[in-house]
Design a protein around this nucleic acid. Structure first.
Length: 158
DNA sequence: GCCAACGTTGGC
DNA sequence: GCCAACGTTGGC
């Protein structure tokens, strides 16, 4: 099993929003970056766990855990002219953009702020902490993942 | 709202 | 295939 970090702007779609969805599940649409798409397509499997990261937030950081509940499939918003994610260059015969389904997995008893992560020597080298990092989906090493769960007050993985 | 860093676009 | 210009991201 692999571990991931998924960014979302809480003003657009927050961890609490995910919990309110039917089956606490949401298609992770709108990814329009090839590297992030490739992580979904080539790396993600059902059962993988992910850190739900709030970007562009008053306090950026990890809000909780999600699980990948469906492997990559075409993102319909690329073919929807009314969608902000519409991509007129994408060919319906060979969809350019994919998404996975993400399901709530566990709350963090305490929020893990980006600042706390930066201060923690155990998390040195994490992609999210690299200057200028803009990838919305990144793989996370198991040791980093487990350490962040501890910081979040989660004693046992779901 | 500022701005550094980055990915994408398109002219050549 | 280079690279300048541009748009976007995201912390601050």
């Amino acid at each position: 099993m692999r571990h991931w970090l998924l960014k979302s702007e809480p003003d657009v779609f927050s961890f609490d929003d995910l919990k309110k969805r039917p089956k606490k599940t949401e298609p992770w649409n709108g990814v329009r970056n090839y590297q992030a798409r490739n992580f979904m397509r080539d790396g993600m499997e059902v059962g993988d766990l992910g850190l739900f990261y709030h970007s562009n937030a008053a306090v950026p950081g990890i809000a909780g855990l999600v699980r990948i509940s469906r492997t990559a499939y075409p993102d319909p918003t690329q073919f929807d002219p009314s969608s902000e994610y519409h991509d007129p260059k994408s060919d319906p015969e060979a969809p350019r953009w994919l998404m996975v389904d993400v399901t709530w997995a566990a709350d963090f008893p305490s929020y893990v702020s980006l600042d706390a992560m930066k201060q923690d020597p155990a998390l040195e080298g994490m992609l999210i902490l690299r200057r200028g990092n803009r990838l919305s989906i990144t793989p996370v090493e198991a040791s980093h993942f487990e350490h962040i769960c501890q910081l979040g007050g989660l004693n046992a993985l779901p």
